[in-house]
């Protein structure tokens, strides 16, 4: 799991350019599924055929990043966020373009930190003038290596490569016979508005949906009140800004976790959404739940997860894949 997570989190995959991540995932799951394809928007869809019902299990593979909006004569680039990036997270932070070039983000002279905003930030890529290989519209991701910090994992893009890793691990451990059809969707553009999962769900017409994503925690000094903590198990989402988990799916998740002694916590996320938000509103409505991986420092260069939670999430997802979903 650690190696897989290192590989996935260090890959380049900002919203809109997820193909590098998709290729890595494809390598890992080819052979474990009946069909594997990329749809028109770039979602990677892996199908394990089976009888009805059909369940869509979605984890987004894109990550937050920045986009170059302007380049001046000295070669300094100006930036806009792609997804929920806060400007102060970027000061002194290295970012990497798709072709590999790395630069550092800094700010113009400001009187106090309140003035720190996107127009005051620039990216220095070491160029002394405008150069051909750096262009307006280029996307960049945070440059931050994966680290095992005292047994817990720190990396950029843990949101949501952790979810991707959980899908991959569960998928590879599925038994030969499964009681339903499973469509694993590695979705694009979640961070900019749950876009990939929306069209994938429309196309796949599932009977049930499940999103796997990271969630925030309330276990750090003076954190906002939240009952989820790192290391206390997989989180079963009850509500966030995008979805209220369908009671049937929520109960199935709780029963499955309890039956197999898988540690779990119930999650209410005050602000934020997941692919479940669009899957459950697809067509005539799709009863949908979400399995979350507790994560500290979401949307920063160092997102932290606990391997015990990942293990619980894989276990719970695997059991859900072989449980009987009540039609």
């Amino acid at each position: 799991m650690e190696n897989l997570l290192k590989l996935l989190t260090e890959a380049f995959g900002p919203s809109g350019e997820e193909s590098e991540v998709a290729a890595l995932i494809e390598q890992k799951i080819r052979g474990a599924v009946d069909h594997l394809y990329t749809d028109k928007l770039g979602n990677l869809v892996a199908v394990r055929q089976g009888p009805s019902p059909r369940i869509v299990i979605s984890a987004h593979m894109d990550e937050i990043g920045v986009i170059i909006t302007h380049i001046d004569d000295q070669g300094f680039a100006r930036l806009a966020p792609v997804g929920g990036v806060l400007p102060h997270q970027l000061v002194g932070q290295r970012v990497r373009l798709k072709q590999g070039r790395v630069g550092v983000v800094y700010h113009e002279k400001i009187k106090n930190l309140k003035e720190l905003d996107w127009p005051r930030l620039y990216l220095d890529l070491g160029a002394e003038k405008q150069v051909e290989e750096i262009r307006i519209g280029d996307l960049a991701v945070l440059e931050q290596p994966f680290v095992n910090a005292g047994g817990r994992f720190l990396a950029k893009a843990m949101d949501n490569r952790a979810g991707c890793a959980v899908l991959i691990e569960a998928l590879r451990r599925l038994p030969r016979e499964i009681p339903q059809e499973l469509c694993f969707v590695f979705s694009v553009q979640e961070e900019v508005g749950l876009r990939g999962a929306r069209t994938a769900a429309y196309h796949l017409k599932p009977d049930f949906g499940l999103a796997v994503d990271v969630t925030r925690v309330g276990d750090t000094p003076k954190a906002p009140l939240m009952a989820v903590a790192l290391g206390k198990g997989a989180a079963i989402k009850v509500k966030d800004s995008s979805v209220i988990t369908h009671p049937i799916v929520r109960q199935l998740m709780i029963d499955t976790a309890e039956q197999h002694n898988i540690p779990y916590q119930l999650e209410i996320l005050e602000r934020g959404g997941t692919d479940a938000g669009v899957i459950h509103l697809s067509r005539e409505g799709v009863p949908t739940g979400a399995l979350s991986i507790p994560c500290r420092y979401v949307h920063t260069p160092s997102e932290m997860v606990d391997p015990a939670d990942l293990k619980a999430a894989v276990e719970l997802l695997k059991k859900l894949c072989t449980s009987n979903w009540p039609v």
Binding site: G218, L225, M226, A227, V238, K239, I244, I268, E270
Partner: peptide, 16 residues
């Protein structure tokens, strides 16, 4: 609302 946390017998909540 929904229960978001139990705190020494008191109940914190999240708006629905």
């Amino acid at each position: 609302a929904m229960v978001s946390r139990l705190e020494k017998g008191f109940v914190r909540f999240s708006a629905v």
